[in-house]
Amino acid sequence: MTEKQDRKAFFRELGKYSALGLEMAISVVIGLGVGYYLDRWLGTSPWLTVIWIGIGFAAGVRSLYRAALRSERDLERDEAEKRKPGGE
């Protein structure tokens, strides 16, 4: 039973972390795109590009932070479940 649980947790974490790298990179690229086109539209080059790259980076860190919170909660729950049936 515990081995099956471990395998499930492994797959879950695998999916989660394989998402993170691409998500962080794409956040910065989206920020860059938004900033670039706003700059071209409003003629404020380069300030909005710089600001929106910062926002994109923050968005990447935000998704990292969210994944870390989730991961912590899931692992804690797994530990609690593992401990329950046997009793210390």
Partner: peptide, 18 residues
């Protein structure tokens, strides 16, 4: 607000790109 919107927009893009 912009940070959350960008991080939510990154999700479908990363899903499809991967």
């Amino acid at each position: 607000l912009p940070i959350e919107i960008v991080s939510h927009l990154a999700r479908p893009l990363s899903l499809s790109l991967r």
